[in-house]
Amino acid sequence: MRLKLIHVSFIAFAAVLSCNDSEDPIIINEEEVITTVTATLTPVGGGTIITLQSRDLDGDGPNVPVITISGNLAPNTTYSGAIEVLNETVTPAENITEEVEEEGDEHQFFFTPTNNVVTVAYADMDINGDPIGIEFTLTTTNASSGNLTVTLIHEPNKNAAGVSSGDITNAGGETDAEATFAIGVQ
């Protein structure tokens, strides 16, 4: 019966299908993880450089991010700001800022102050002329205190109302990183 031949080839096929080997798993060091967001604020016209840093070395692990603020901002000063995003779970640390810049049209940083402690304006743009926020200017007025939340959104709707001027409300998208810094101006 010719079906017999089919039956034999069937079994051969199954034998090939089930070939398998197993060994110890390989460690995965996630490359896309953002562990560190650092904003460096350089006073225009000279003065003390201030850094704001949020660092979470275990990524989505249980440890909370460590916030470090190098000092108070000076009143009535304009700072030129730059953001660096790192993945420090790998050695050497991976600079994710470059990726954000390359895909600038799909990313945007938002700076949301409370108590009007500072005002922030974008100083860069993507291929469509919309802001990214890797570079920005930050301006202080009189002595005060409040929070500044820095949020990196992936795939925001940059055409939605207010988004290109830095209002996160209608941005949509997904949060890739978010850090809140308690700012003092004095």
Binding site: I34, D56, G59, D60, G61, P65, E178
Partner: peptide, 9 residues
């Protein structure tokens, strides 16, 4: 709730 650099979950 746990807080990570992405926000809280």
């Amino acid at each position: 709730v746990e807080t990570t650099i992405r926000g809280s979950f």
